[in-house]
Design a protein around this nucleic acid. Structure first.
Lengths: 221, 221
DNA sequence: CAGAAACTTGCACGGAGTGTAAATATGCAC
DNA sequence: GTGCATATTTACACTCCGTGCAAGTTTCTG
């Protein structure tokens, strides 16, 4: 099991079966992605490997890419959950930083990293990844809006909200991009430490307004 | 002619024909999008309306969405060109601000705004839009890298580059989102002035590190 | 004008995605 | 457990997408 579901599991036979097939589909998809490479297998291949009919596949996912993107969605949902756990009076950037470095452990990052490397080359997959990040941005906006509504009672600045949420995601993505360029799919402790530091640095840059004089970053590896 | 091509036009018969066909396709696509709504017309419909064969359509664009996204690409390429025109010693955020507000004129913004509104509802279109913005991010990274390579000779910080470029795009997008939510497809002088102010504010937020105390924005409309 | 190169077109084919109706599995009341 | 309502899977058929190919047409070049 590459990455555990975060759903509370309402233990009914139907829900259980559905979760199982869903998992079987994503597993089969990832397996085929590994063995055949992006774009070199069909929905029918996935269905066969998962032991279901082609039609049933489409009852769960609207495309191969959607099935694979569930990995990224899982990762980002996880991040969102961490974010929502932070105290409401904490500065947003600090919350984001904390939520992100929480995720820099092997179990969480591994599936994400693998998909990341495999998706780099493929335009189709890349689009789905972008969509996932965009979806996460929307959720951060919601989370931040709630938070502001609770603390500062008055009217809140939509521009502030959206610009901040978008920038946080962009910086998180930038950190992952750089990490990947540097370390590839390496999941060693040193590599993950680099990732954590990159995430911290990225949030630092954001918080300091990207000081035009540059090179304030603390990582000189 | 909704929006003039920025290509230098190497006036050969072939290039001319190709440009005309390309334009005919995007025009037909937009027309059909307006009249039938997203997802309610086929590539064959576009081809017929543009007076070409279905096969030829695919010689120009890989999908309906790609044809429509050319509008957004045109807009963003325009922004990129403005950005590259700025002096190399100017702070990047200032260059971005200048390039962006340059675009807040009716001619440039009109096609973009229309597509924006029509794409809101449709997932397919939205993905293509995201891709266009992502492509623009990559180009900003290149532009900024060149610039840094020219001024500061030493090794440059990839994280800084990518985080900054991504944040700029995110803030630009946020400004457009808010503008659209406020003004819809209104292209009046007042509306465009709002857009300009939003873009300025967004860059201001970014430059000030999103001051946690919030509400430093200057637009109380 | 003739030949080369670029572009268009029709055709055919495999694959994506969806509606539909029949078959199968599950939940629930008794 | 039996029987029925509801949910899920499946097969089938259909439209549309995207691409390789080979023949036709236009444009360029000498």
């Amino acid at each position: 099991m590459p990455h555990p579901q975060t759903t509370p599991a309402p233990t009914s036979r139907r829900e259980l079966n559905k979760a199982a097939t869903r998992q079987a589909i994503t597993d089969a998809s990832l397996q085929l992605l590994r063995s055949k490479g992006p774009g070199n297998f069909t929905v029918e291949d996935i269905a066969d490997a998962a032991g279901i009919s082609r039609r049933t596949f489409f009852n769960y996912f609207s495309s191969t890419e959607a099935a694979l993107a569930s990995v990224t969605h899982g990762f980002l949902d996880n991040a969102l959950a961490q974010f929502r756990l932070r105290p409401a009076d904490e500065p947003i950037l600090e919350s984001a930083r904390a939520a992100l470095i929480q995720l820099a452990d092997p179990m969480t990052v591994a599936p994400m990293a693998e998909l990341y490397s495999l998706a780099q080359s493929n335009p189709q997959l890349n689009r789905s990844e972008l969509e996932a990040w965009d979806h996460c941005t929307a959720e951060i906006i919601d989370a931040a809006r709630e938070r502001f509504a609770r603390t500062a009672g008055g009217e809140l600045d939509e521009l502030y909200l959206r610009a901040l949420a978008g920038s946080i995601i962009s910086c998180g993505k930038a950190a992952m991009d750089v990490w990947f360029a540097r370390c590839g799919a390496d999941l060693s402790a040193a590599s993950l430490s680099t990732l954590r530091q990159l995430l911290i640095d990225a949030m630092g840059l954001l918080g300091s307004g990207f000081m035009p004089t540059a090179t304030l970053s603390t990582d000189r590896h």
